[in-house]
């Protein structure tokens, strides 16, 4: 299956990247090549249910419910301007909840 320019443009939109037309066209070709290589590969139907983890032995790390303030507030907002009350101002979003 081919990836066309339209798909690249859509991906660019979803990924918040600007992709000029010539680049989109080149990428569409490249990506289609990569997919073609996959077309030629046969896959055995997967066996019993594996977990998605690499060694299958991993579990989500857990922690106790303790509130601990972060020790270095300064390091958190490196040079980002904050309003007097602590809010961060960003350019307006187009749509609102």
């Amino acid at each position: 299956m081919k990836i066309d320019e339209k798909a690249i443009k859509q991906a660019a939109d979803m990924a918040r990247l600007i992709v000029p037309d010539e680049e989109a066209s080149a990428l569409a070709q490249e990506f289609s090549q990569i997919l073609k290589a996959l077309d030629d590969i046969n896959v055995n139907p997967a066996g019993e249910n594996d977990s998605d983890t690499a060694s299958g032995k991993l579990e989500s790390a857990l922690r106790e419910d303790e509130a601990k303030p972060f020790h270095d507030a300064e390091g958190l907002f490196q040079g980002i301007a904050r309003e007097k009350d602590g809010h961060i101002a960003v350019p307006r979003v187009l749509d609102q909840e």
Binding site: R63, D65, A67, F70, L76, R82
Partner: peptide
């Protein structure tokens, strides 16, 4: 009704100063 956030130890208390209950994880 937990004391800390889902994935980090920041407090969940309501009414704190904006951006006071933050850390590298939740940011």
């Amino acid at each position: 009704n937990t004391r800390s956030k889902m994935f980090c130890a920041c407090s969940t208390e309501f009414g704190a100063q904006p951006n006071a209950n933050t850390c590298p994880v939740c940011l």
